[in-house]
């Protein structure tokens, strides 16, 4: 079970099982001739289950899980956390403040660039992009409680 394709096949099979279980729990299946809202998801899940079994079966020649390198893992986690922060903060503290903090975190803390460069980039990009989108393209971006 340490081969990559066997692991991915097993995960996809689990996903397929969950879809079937959830579809049958919450959605009417309908009939073959008059499909209901649960029909297509169930069909797709069964297809996915079949394909995942095939992936697992023919996955004996794939690379070992231990051969994967995760050197960029910490960086990736920091970037994902930054995306999550943006999603959480965007409508709370507004676009400009969120983007300033996101850029400050990535440029200043993760990449450790010079403070003057970090501040100028964070302010320039957050305010500049807001001006182009909000004022020029009329895209409704969230404002902070203080109105900027």
């Amino acid at each position: 079970m340490s081969k990559l394709d066997r692991i991915s096949g097993a995960v996809l099979f689990l996903v397929a099982f969950l879809i079937v279980w959830e579809s049958n729990r919450t959605l009417p299946l309908g009939t073959l001739h008059n499909p209901g809202p649960g029909y297509m998801p169930t069909i797709l899940a069964l297809l996915l289950a079949g394909l995942s079994l095939l992936i697992t079966l023919i996955g004996r020649d794939s690379a070992r899980f231990s051969s994967l390198e995760w050197t960029e893992g910490k960086h990736a986690l920091a970037i994902l956390a930054a995306c999550g922060f943006a999603a959480l903060a965007l409508e709370g503290i507004g676009y400009q403040a969120t983007m300033f903090l996101l850029l400050f975190f990535l440029l200043g803390i993760v990449e450790r660039l010079r403070l003057t460069l970090v501040l100028s980039l964070a302010v320039g990009l957050s305010v500049g992009s807001f001006w182009v989108f909000y004022n020029f393209l009329r895209v409704p971006l969230p404002l902070s409680p203080l109105g900027f």
Binding site: L103, L107, E111, L121
Partner: peptide
């Protein structure tokens, strides 16, 4: 190192 945070900003935006 400077480009990717900027790209991320435009992705979110």
């Amino acid at each position: 190192r400077i480009l990717y945070p900027s790209i991320l900003l435009f992705c979110v935006l």
